[in-house]
Nucleic acid binder design. Sequence first.
DNA 1: ATGGTGACGACGG
DNA 2: ACCGTCGCCACCA
Length: 116
Amino acid sequence: MTFFEQVWALVATLPRGRVLTYGQVAALLGVPRGARAVGWALRALPEPLARRTPWHRVVGAGGRLSPRASGHEREQRRRLRAEGVTFRGERVDLVRHGAVPLKPLRASPRRSAARR
DNA sequence: ATGGTGACGACGG
DNA sequence: ACCGTCGCCACCA
């Protein structure tokens, strides 16, 4: 199975309301630096398959939408909102909708005095 | 096999 | 926080 097909297969498993970044898709497929290739794979989605593939659930790092998405940025945001995905400004709230745990920017901040 | 390309990503200014 | 650069990968001619 080619890398592209693996991308398509993985994206097809994304449940409603769950999103992955291009980089996460690549990492899950064993290519940590292959985010760009993932974007190309989605761009190359063959028509019959494209219609039944939730390509809109794949977003850029930090939950941003790709303006280059064949001009589908608008459509992508519409579809995401339609399935309950919330945004933090112009970005998808990955904390709530990410399909995989976010990379800890640092160890859990202050657990002892945590609270506020 | 080599070089160019793009729905990306981490960094630095 | 925004924008420009440079690096990386799989694909195709």
